[in-house]
Design a protein around this nucleic acid. Structure first.
Length: 602
DNA sequence: TTTAGGG
DNA sequence: CCCTAAA
């Protein structure tokens, strides 16, 4: 034990400049005091720094398996810590060491425990008065934990009233855990993972000054009351007195902030929020992967993971914001949680809009993730149409479309026109296809007319979707972020390509017909064909209604094309199983007539 | 690398 | 669209 103490000094973890700055800024020794600060999306670099930090620290933690040492070291320094009261078991130590202690140790020598990481660089935004307040409080009256609340007005407090008696986190159902989570962090969580919840709660409590004021201790995921000691009267009384309202209120707050905005303003963030959030951001990676493997830290799926989570969150958020106009922001109307309005509701909460993410509903601050719209921003057709005329007026274009079959670059635009503005130019393409088809039917020949197009036309889509087509992936690969809607033109090219080179020769088709379309890989072609095939056979029976039918959300593929697709499929023996089964159910070799008859039946 | 097929 | 097995 004693020997380990020097370690803190010796093995001082590589501290980032930001941390140094922090230390400098916060001269007062505070241990595990909650620092309110503003969280801002961290840059990738910052994240990396943190990760490395943790990583390094991790190694160190092995040298200091028992977190008690931290406390002791601190005590030795002459700063009694509330945390001393913690009876941390070896198992628990994992958790602790895994998270807060990492930071705690870093700062231990200075008796400054930082809860947040993200805020590091932004600490300048911390309300100094508040901080000082905090310091003084913690020095003479550690129990008095009213750091942020006062000034900020955000007065969330852990509702430990819920911890009366003992609680065995292991036994609690998810639901209960979520409740506990709520009580602990003052906000809702939608996380279902028990491990995660338990861990989070444990950490939350363990690191909470408030909790330390209580007589509870945590042992093996069990919160137990330990003897009678003086409690944080103020807190206790306040909470117990207005426990319910408090919770409700808090919930509303939590939900609010989680959904609408991850409060930008520091003043609105309760210390707990910050701490947990910060912690979260630190442990995000670890928590997820290896819940059990606490010892081993999987330093992985950060970006991707975060990204995915963000998406989920994003979804949730957007859902909740479904009717933003209807629900004034300041009404803590949360669809999913029945929050009864209370007198405590702060009506002055400002409607803040930030892009701060919350992780898994726990209100975690997510480093940074470019949240690009999944769905395309509505194409650029319109602007394109709007702009085009300048160079070539509609009339001209129409004429061209109509007559110049192989209009070099116009094909796509024509198609777009056709799609978007079902007006003027609309008919141009249709007839062509139809004609083509007819031609084919009668002569049994393949496309002749469109041949040029297929070869010549390029995918002038480029300009319609230059929008970050691909995004780097962890795996190093590039994955297409947005779906690139297939234009009629492309479909036609694909169909023609299949007709000419045969289905399966995606590579060929790609090279010959889609050389101008860098996106559209052979796989894409294949996929598209697969879809076309499906669509064609699905819609074939009702082919008539396709064109006439009500407009579909997604640009419907002209019946003629589907028709053709089916035909090609038929010719190339690509008849969908379902149909082929029925078709061939009768005879092994059914002739044309039979086939037609049967298909007609179907 | 290209295909084919599942997710 | 992504991923991957198989060719």
């Amino acid at each position: 034990m004693e020997a380990s103490e020097p370690k803190f000094e010796d093995s001082a973890v590589p501290v980032t400049s930001t941390i140094r700055a922090l230390e400098k800024e916060i001269a007062h020794p505070i241990v595990y005091q909650l620092v309110r600060s503003r969280l801002v999306p961290a840059t990738q670099d910052e994240i990396m720094v943190v990760e490395d930090l943790l990583e390094d620290d991790k190694c160190e933690s092995k040298l200091v398996p028992d977190t008690r040492q931290i406390s002791e070291s601190c005590v030795t320094e002459g700063y009694p810590l509330e945390r001393n009261s913690f009876q941390v078991t070896e198992e628990k130590s994992n958790v602790l060491v895994d998270s807060v202690p990492d930071l705690g140790k870093i700062d231990a020598p200075n008796k400054v425990a930082v809860h947040g990481l993200a805020p590091l660089s932004e600490l300048s935004n911390v309300d100094h008065s508040v901080r000082n307040d905090v310091c003084s409080h913690s020095q003479d009256a550690p129990n008095e934990d009213t750091p942020s609340t006062s000034a900020a007005g955000s007065s969330w407090k852990p509702d430990f009233s819920k911890l009366e008696g003992k609680i065995c986190l292991d036994d609690l159902p998810v639901k209960e855990l979520q409740e506990t989570f709520k009580a602990t962090f003052g906000r809702e969580t939608s996380v279902k993972d028990k491990q995660w919840l338990k861990r989070r709660i444990t950490m939350g409590l363990t690191n909470s000054c408030d909790f330390s004021c209580t007589t509870f201790i945590i042992r093996d995921n069990v919160v137990v009351k330990k003897g009678e000691e003086q409690i944080c009267h103020r807190e206790k009384s306040r909470i117990s007195a207005d426990s319910e309202d408090g919770v409700a209120n808090l919930n509303s707050r939590g939900s609010f902030s989680d959904h609408d905005n991850k409060i930008n303003d520091a003043a609105d963030l309760s210390g707990a929020d910050v701490s947990s959030s910060a912690l979260e951001s630190c442990n995000v990676t670890k928590d997820l992967n290896a819940e059990q493997i606490t010892a081993k830290r999987a330093r992985k799926p950060t970006k991707r993971y975060i990204e995915e989570l963000s998406e989920i969150e994003s979804r949730e958020t957007s859902e909740k914001l479904a009717s933003p106009e209807k629900i004034p922001r300041y009404q803590f109307a949360c669809p999913e949680t029945h929050i009864r309005p209370t007198k405590n509701v702060r009506s002055y909460a400002r409607p803040l809009v930030t892009r701060q993410d919350s992780l898994g509903g726990s209100g975690v601050q997510i480093p940074f993730v470019s949240r690009i719209r999944r769905s395309r921003p509505r194409e650029n057709f319109m602007p394109l149409l709007k702009l085009q005329p300048s160079g070539m007026d509609m009339a001209t274009r129409q004429v061209r479309s109509a007559f110049d079959i192989s209009g070099p670059q116009e094909d796509d635009k024509r198609n777009n026109d056709l799609i978007k503005t079902s007006s003027s130019t609309g008919w141009t393409e249709q007839p062509r296809i139809a004609a083509c088809e007819k031609d084919e039917h009668s002569s049994g020949m393949k496309i002749v007319e469109l041949e040029n197009d297929v070869e010549v036309n390029d995918c002038s889509e480029d300009n319609s979707d230059d929008n970050v087509v691909t995004v780097p992936t962890q795996k190093g690969g590039m994955r297409r972020k947005h779906h690139r809607p297939w234009t009629i033109n492309e479909v036609v090219k694909l169909v023609e390509g299949v007709a000419r080179y045969g289905a399966g020769k995606w590579s060929e088709i790609k090279r010959l017909a889609f050389s101008a379309c860098p996106y559209r890989t052979s796989v894409d072609l294949k996929d598209k064909w697969r879809n076309l095939l499906k669509a064609s056979f699905v819609q074939l029976p009702a082919e008539k209604g396709i064109l006439n039918s009500r407009k579909q959300a997604s640009v419907p593929i002209p019946a003629p094309i589907l028709s053709r697709v089916r035909e090609l499929a038929d010719m190339q023996g690509q008849i969908p199983p379902v149909l082929s089964v029925c078709k061939s159910s009768g005879h092994s070799s059914s002739d044309r007539s039979v086939h037609e008859a049967r298909s007609g039946f179907l």
